[in-house]
Design a protein around this nucleic acid. Structure first.
Length: 724
DNA sequence: AGCACGCCGACT
DNA sequence: GTCGGCGTGCTC
């Protein structure tokens, strides 16, 4: 009897064999229900075998093979296998985590209702027969004659639709916008854009990785659209990755508008399980031309995929921070190479890894050095030396003046401050005590809620009432120290009584649609001053914005994380790019105590290449990525000593292997944020000169680590970590 | 990861 | 006496 090798969602790096009477080659990639221990589990058939290495008596039989769903294609399985291997995550856990959540549930797959219904020929013929008295049916008929009716808009018609479907008068259809807006004529490409498009289109067929380096406002999206257009016209599929959910609706709108006839789906973690399944299923059936999504979309099954675009490729949200800790950008490059298709990585501030790849010629660099609208110049960046012009309540005199100026001219300003809440700390003026989080090694952040204050921990979510007296010295003189978005909002309202102020941070943008509503309010000029965290650096143009003020940027310069300056530079370039996107010139004012810092000098010159060269030189000297490759073994336990002791043992277990593979094992250290939610965290850094060396070491090493006793300790491995 | 088996403390 | 604490070991 044939044996199927099944991947299961267990943290074991192996497959399980089951007997399956009627299984054949076409069942590879299908879901199965199998008995596993005392329970049943959903699995995925990954291989077929004549016999198992285990004696037949120990094998159980599969309970059912799901043949309603098309089998996952070989290319998808290969992609998942690569990710599991590269990121050192068990294959079963990897595969199952890449399925939409609805397919991981044990209950038999209920046929999903279609996204929309459209009239069939038989239905059209039947319409005159509908009784004039059946009002609801007549209305439904009228609506259907205008085009497919999405189920989400069907309301009370649902039951009629079901009956009509059974009668064959309507059929399942793709959900299309009720009245597809006419495609707006594509704008004329600038010479740079045209050259870029031509370079990619005229390149020899096959794999090619392109770094599209374009300043903000240079029209990278237009280049993507042209390249995608070429693929769609040839009946092929394209995949576009964007960093965050906030960005998908607007990007989706732009793509739909441009390709009204294309079958486009968007895929991200914000979708309800049903929607997510429907979209994913449509891809599996080949009923999709264009997929737009966040990092998880890189694993969409697509059988005619011929182009991948990764927008804002430097963005940290492409890296998953738990479970399978993949980088969607890196997985995308692998997928493109394996499929032998082009991939375009776009950014104004590429990741230094990407930049280096371009410099070494592994990626081809395409430059868009100018803004697409000739009249929109890059903003002038000025540094305000806070040692001379001391900020009061966070605002320097120069910045205050500039704000007043914009208000007088009826122009908009944006203040960028990367700290949400009222103040980063509550501080005792008597003894210097700062309220800590009892569960984390971090301060609690003061937030204002209505008229009241509360303390919140940004790491574990703990909320508490601020103390009235200092718990340490009994002093009554507790004060908010430092600036957060809420306090800045308050200060501005105080200083500019007539001004309309809008705060955008995670707290205000959390509600569904809030982000879009805020963007509209800004574009409708209902706002004079915007206050926001990095959330405003993403997303779209604010055409009436002529001033950007940056507060508290220096903080990143003091961070022990070697990537902190890279992130800061990217953020500042991006936020600076918000200013003066239309006809009026923009101005950027950065408050800093280190105006001579090379990072700010490069920012003033809008010179990413200079910043990259400086930073890469430092990285080379320190042997940091991209000049080395890293992995982090993380451990968390109730007591830090246990975590350290475990990592020490892991290190001992790896010393010989490390020598053999030419990798360096550092000493275990407490994590930068050592305690989160009462768990103590430590980590062990592994560093190698090449990916191959690192990979060669990790496999056998982790096998040994798996054998170590863990008790209540949890550990995980992070290959190519971004955060420390 | 679950889930069972197993061997020691305070409860109807 | 046994209910249940979570340590250890297995799952085709």
């Amino acid at each position: 009897m044939p044996v199927v090798r099944v991947a299961l969602d267990v943290p074991l790096p192996k497959l399980f064999d089951y007997l399956a009477e009627d299984a054949g080659r076409t069942d590879i990639g299908r879901r199965v229900i199998v008995p596993f221990g005392q329970r049943r589990q959903i699995g995925l058939i990954v291989e077929l075998a004549q016999a198992s290495e285990l004696p037949a008596t120990q094998l159980k039989s599969v309970i059912a093979i799901d043949r309603d769903l098309p089998a996952l294609p070989a290319e998808w399985l290969k992609l998942a296998r690569f990710a599991a291997g590269y990121y050192q995550h068990p294959l079963g856990a990897t595969l199952l985590s890449l399925l939409p959540p609805a397919l991981k549930r044990l209950k038999p797959t209920r046929a999903e209702p279609p996204a929309a219904y459209a009239l069939t020929a038989a239905g059209t013929a039947h319409l005159p027969d509908i009784s004039p008295r059946a009002k609801a049916q007549r209305q439904l008929a009228e609506r259907l004659q205008q085009g497919p009716l999405p189920l989400s808009e069907a309301g009370a018609w649902r039951s009629h639709l079901r009956l009509w479907h059974r009668a064959g008068w309507v059929e399942a259809a793709e959900a299309m916008p009720a009245s597809p807006a006419p495609a707006s004529p594509p704008p004329q490409l600038t010479p740079d854009q045209a050259a870029t498009v031509a370079a990619v289109l005229e390149a020899p067929a096959g794999f090619g990785a392109w770094l599209l380096h374009g300043v903000t406002g240079s029209g990278k999206t237009e280049v993507y659209l042209k390249l995608i257009e070429a693929q769609l016209a040839a009946g092929r599929q394209a995949l576009v990755l964007v960093p965050e959910i906030h960005l998908t609706p607007q990007t989706e709108a732009a793509f739909r508008n441009r390709f009204p006839g294309a079958r486009l789906i968007s895929l991200h973690s914000g979708l309800a399980d049903g929607e997510r399944l429907r979209a994913w299923r449509a891809c599996l059936d080949g009923r999709v031309d264009l997929v737009l999504g966040t990092r998880l979309a890189v694993f969409t099954p697509m059988d005619r995929l011929r182009l991948i675009v990764v927008d804002e490729e430097h963005d940290g949200s492409y890296k998953q921070q738990e479970g399978l800790r993949y980088s969607a950008r890196d997985v995308a490059v692998w997928r493109a190479r394996t499929l032998d298709i082009p991939i375009v990585l776009g950014s104004a501030t590429p990741a230094l890894e990407t930049w280096r790849n371009a410099e070494r010629g592994r990626y081809r660099k395409l430059e868009l050095p100018e803004r697409a609208h000739a009249e929109a110049e890059l903003p002038a960046v000025k540094l305000i030396d806070t040692r001379a012009d001391r900020p009061r309540q966070g605002l320097s005199a120069s910045l205050t003046r500039a704000l007043r100026d914009r208000l007088a001219r009826g122009e908009q300003s944006l203040l960028f401050i990367n700290r949400r809440g009222y103040a980063p700390t509550l501080y005792c003026n008597g003894c210097g005590y700062v309220v800590p989080c009892p569960r984390c090694s971090a301060h609690q952040v003061l937030h204002r809620k209505g008229g009241k204050f509360e303390l919140r921990c940004h790491h574990c979510g703990l909320m508490s009432r601020p103390p009235e007296v200092c718990p340490d010295c009994g002093s009554l003189d507790l004060r908010p120290a430092g600036q957060g978005t809420q306090r800045l909002e308050e200060t501005l309202a105080d200083q500019f009584p007539g001004a309309r102020i809008l705060r955008i941070d995670r707290d205000t943008a959390a509600r569904r649609g809030a982000f879009a509503a805020m963007r509209e309010a800004v574009n409708a000029r209902e706002v004079d001053i915007l206050v926001g965290t990095q959330i405003v650096t993403k997303g779209h143009d604010f055409p009436h914005l002529t001033l950007v003020g940056v507060l508290g940027a220096d903080q990143a310069l003091l961070s022990p994380d070697f990537r902190a300056t890279e992130r800061l530079f990217a953020q500042l370039m991006q936020v600076a790019g918000r200013a003066g996107r239309a006809a009026r010139p923009g101005e950027v004012l950065v408050q800093t105590g280190y105006p001579e810092h090379p990072l700010y000098r490069a920012l003033q010159a809008h010179d990413f290449a200079r910043f990259a060269a400086q930073t890469l030189k430092e990285r080379r000297e320190a042997e940091f990525p991209p000049y080395s490759h890293q992995a982090l073994l993380r451990a968390e336990a109730e007591r830090i000593d246990d975590a350290i002791a475990f990592l020490d043992k892991a290190k001992q277990a790896g010393l010989a292997l490390a020598r053999e593979h030419g990798v360096t094992l550092f000493d275990p250290t407490p994590a930068l944020l050592a305690r989160v939610a009462r768990r103590e965290r430590a980590q062990l850094l592994v560093q190698a000169g090449s990916r191959q060396h690192l990979q060669g070491f990790l496999g056998p090493w982790l096998e040994a680590v798996r054998g170590l006793p863990t008790r209540t300790l949890k550990w995980s491995i992070d290959v190519d970590p971004l955060d420390f």
